[in-house]
Amino acid sequence: MAAEPAILSVQGVARSFGGIQAVDNCTFDVQSGLITGLIGPNGAGKTTVFNLITGFLSADQGSIRLKGKEILGLAPHRVERLGVVRTFQHLRLWNKMSVIENVLLGCATTAGENVFSLFLRAGAVRAEEQRALDRAMEVLRFFGLVDRAHELAEDLAYPEQKLLSMARIFATDAPVMLLDEPTSGLDSESIDRIVPMVRRLVDHGKTVLLIEHNIELISELSDQVVFLHQGQVLAAGAPAEIMRDPALTEIYFGV
């Protein structure tokens, strides 16, 4: 595994808020085509790491490379274009927009991007819109939301909203997906619906970095686990190894 260069490499990243060192000399790699679980007790800095990777926060020091290219300090939409997308723990759906619109906005188009081409190259824009629409339907089919396509996002049941939040970042074609607690707030039946979905993301060539509190789930899903505590990486490796380490379980469960 180590022989292959990591698709995403976090090196010595630090970020403080006032006097609090939220992330401190944080270093880990995410391997392409695998599911990496980011775990740790509350306040360990997991979401801050997500914010740093995706450009929502700037770091005090360190480096984050995507396929060898520095992405730290780029604006979120630039990070997305280079290939990293994320979900939020609080879903932040576009509630008043339909399910398909939520996904369509993620579908990359270039012709419609430029305001002037809307007038000068209307034909090209329309063809591209149609392609985006087809793509959005395909994504909804993948996530089992196709028959809800024209409902408002706010009218979906919560588990479906969770799926939609994944669907619209899946639609961006970015290879690296950061999922912030995809199963939080769900009952076990809904979890059973989401978990195979995360697996299928990898089958479709995605790389997943996942924040998750459910330890059982992490062991089941992840190919590797990064254990974060007080903003530092305490351990990284196969889930079974991490779970066997009594020092880590003590930190995690506080026993």
Binding site: E80, L105, A108, T172
Partner: peptide, 12 residues
């Protein structure tokens, strides 16, 4: 409706 999410899917 959600500026953060818009940026996440690549809207400038």
């Amino acid at each position: 409706s959600s500026p953060e999410m818009a940026r996440t899917v690549g809207i400038d």
